[in-house]
Amino acid sequence: MSAILLEVDHLTKRFGGVTAVNECSFEVQEGSITALIGPNGSGKTTAFNMITGYLKADSGHIRFRGDLIERPRPADLYRRGLSRTFQQARIFPELSVEENLVIAAGYSWRQLFGRRVSRADQDRARQILAEFRLESLLELPAADLSYGQRKLLEFAAVLMSNPKLVLLDEPTAGVNPVMIDTMERHIRERNAAGVTFLIVEHDMQLVMRLCDPVIVLDQGSKIAFGTPLEVQSDPLVLEAYLGG
């Protein structure tokens, strides 16, 4: 029933002598919340960077929605429905919260010459802020937000374009426990609404609660794949985490 939304095929990236990602292959099923875990430095962020076009892979390729992506480029992928957040939340600090959301919604060529923030833009931004209970922040410069609020804003912003697949790089790192619950709730709600997630996360309890399946990387290679329970008891995984 469920189709493959993202297919990663033998992706490899070397930095000098370090092989950050090594012949890595995996799939993300449409409608899933897939986790990508692994010890520090195992290549998770590098894999994200290659998938989203921020880094050129040394070899291997990806398929998204069935199409081979010859030259992944962030803007093209974004328009096709693949978006991401960064490990260190990246927002535009000089812009207001509202503008951060509006710019991420995308625009046509005609709208490029139109109003900075149109009535329709305003409505959409307000709607998503209401969903995130951040209405009071609407007009603030994004620079004034707390770290956790920035992570929420970046997450809310990538949802503005109605993506099919969202890659989240450590959405709860450095965020207070209340905010972690909030983030988890939003991921679940959006997933129920049809958005697929691929999540890098170090909080194992959250991964066990939220994700299925789980992909495990160690030193750039995929060492395990399965349900949270299967992965948890996999000797290779235990060794990677304890040995690392």
Partner: peptide
């Protein structure tokens, strides 16, 4: 500054790579 051109230019000035990633032209 009143159009999406200006809004887009602000994102380019602040973080061009991120701007690509949210579909800015």
């Amino acid at each position: 500054s009143r159009s999406k051109i200006g809004l887009s230019l602000s994102t380019v000035r602040a973080d061009e790579d991120k701007a690509h990633g949210v579909g800015v032209r």
